[in-house]
Simulated scan of single mutants.
Amino acid sequence: MFRQGPCEKRDELFDREEELRGTIEALRNNVWVAILGMRMSGKTSLAKVAANILSKEGFSYIYVDLRGISNVSGMSRRIINSISEGFFSRMRDYLEKIRVWEVEMSLRKTSKTRTMEEILTELSKRRRLIVILDEVQEIKGGINHFLSMLARLRNSTRNLSFLFTGSSIGLMDTLLHPSRGSPMYGRSPLEIELGPWSGRVAFQFIREGLEKCSIEYNDNEIEDALRVLGTLPGWLSFYGIRRCLGKDHENALRDSESEAIDVALGELRNAIRERGEWARRALRMIAAYGARWSDLDVGVSDSTLSDFLKRLKKLYIISEESGTYIVPDPIYRKAAMRL
């Protein structure tokens, strides 16, 4: 029940029934889907479980991890590599054709985007295909070519569906809110948003997981874990794994909190990258006490500060309550104070 990596089977996924049902129904009806949420909310798990359920109905799927990729050329290369290494293990006869294709495209200097389009079109002729593009938000370079490819595929290939995951910035934001001139205008994917669990669901998750591991616990320990870690599934799994491996409550909580803060720090550093010291100060102010607009005098223009706060909201790092900006997740609050 507590996992280091994403869930893949239905019985591994805790809660999220409504979101899973919506994702599956959309893909069955050839509606493209965007799963939104912050890191550790379970986006990848939801995508993989939905795809695996549909694989029993005749679908195939390709999973592509786009972390660390910042342009469409790199994304195309990773998609093609994912096809060759995974999907075609069951289609050996077609693998050689794809290899020849890639060589021909290279010799003709055809773009990787066009190569990818031809491959996906051919694959979708064989059976219904889902392409999961995980963590698309940081893709920047070459977006227009990619959007044009998506529009062509959307118009010509009914057996092909895309499932995107990420935060609502960058390419994801462009997909969800295309301008009138965008080739994807009127073709936005269905949004499914994953937030933290409620306290009740998070409590039940830890309790059931510990019971499956035959670990002795008391309710005060679970409440303590929720107070320190919050209710994001990923943070709670850090704690649950350690308890199931035999660590006592205090050591498991200390170690899982430390690991979670390290992960969150990486996300925050990426969020403020290239924005200077003022961004770090603004985020620390919000994390420490909560801050109103008038409190955030950090030496930049109103438009610059506004754009930064909007980005943090779209990354689900901050929220706004009655005019006050806060960092709702306790792990991200602690990580922000260490920037």
Score class of each variant (00 low, 15 high):
5 G>I: 01
11 D>S: 13
11 D>T: 07
17 E>G: 04
18 E>Q: 14
19 E>T: 02
20 L>N: 08
23 T>A: 15
26 A>N: 07
28 R>I: 00
30 N>K: 14
30 N>F: 10
33 V>C: 08
34 A>Y: 11
40 M>A: 14
44 T>I: 00
46 L>R: 14
47 A>K: 10
47 A>W: 11
47 A>L: 07
48 K>T: 05
58 G>M: 00
59 F>P: 07
60 S>G: 07
61 Y>K: 03
63 Y>K: 00
68 G>K: 11
70 S>Y: 14
73 S>N: 15
75 M>R: 11
77 R>K: 14
79 I>K: 09
92 R>I: 12
92 R>M: 10
96 E>C: 01
96 E>P: 03
99 R>F: 09
100 V>R: 15
102 E>S: 07
103 V>L: 15
104 E>V: 12
108 R>S: 08
109 K>T: 04
111 S>N: 05
111 S>F: 06
111 S>L: 05
112 K>I: 01
117 E>W: 09
117 E>K: 15
119 I>M: 12
120 L>S: 09
121 T>K: 13
122 E>H: 11
124 S>A: 15
124 S>Y: 08
127 R>K: 14
127 R>G: 04
129 L>I: 05
131 V>N: 10
132 I>H: 11
132 I>N: 09
133 L>W: 09
135 E>H: 07
136 V>Q: 05
137 Q>R: 01
139 I>R: 10
143 I>C: 04
145 H>D: 15
148 S>F: 04
153 L>R: 11
153 L>I: 05
154 R>Q: 12
157 T>A: 11
158 R>A: 11
160 L>W: 06
160 L>R: 05
162 F>C: 12
162 F>E: 12
170 G>K: 06
170 G>W: 10
172 M>L: 15
177 H>P: 01
182 S>M: 12
183 P>W: 13
189 P>L: 01
190 L>P: 03
192 I>S: 06
193 E>D: 06
196 P>C: 03
197 W>T: 00
200 R>S: 14
200 R>A: 12
203 F>K: 13
204 Q>W: 04
205 F>T: 02
207 R>Y: 12
207 R>W: 10
213 C>F: 10
214 S>H: 14
217 Y>A: 05
219 D>C: 01
222 I>C: 03
223 E>V: 08
223 E>L: 15
223 E>Q: 14
228 V>R: 14
232 L>N: 12
232 L>G: 03
233 P>V: 02
236 L>K: 08
239 Y>E: 02
244 C>E: 02
244 C>T: 01
245 L>M: 13
249 H>Y: 04
249 H>G: 01
249 H>M: 01
252 A>H: 11
252 A>E: 09
252 A>Y: 12
253 L>K: 11
255 D>L: 13
256 S>E: 01
263 V>G: 04
269 R>F: 12
270 N>D: 11
276 G>P: 09
277 E>H: 13
279 A>P: 08
281 R>S: 08
282 A>W: 12
283 L>A: 01
285 M>Q: 10
286 I>D: 08
289 Y>I: 03
295 D>K: 00
295 D>V: 00
297 D>Q: 15
301 S>I: 00
307 D>F: 05
309 L>F: 08
309 L>E: 07
310 K>L: 11
314 K>M: 10
318 I>W: 09
318 I>E: 06
321 E>D: 13
325 Y>N: 04
326 I>E: 13
329 D>M: 04
336 A>C: 11
337 M>F: 06
339 L>V: 01
339 L>E: 04
339 L>F: 07
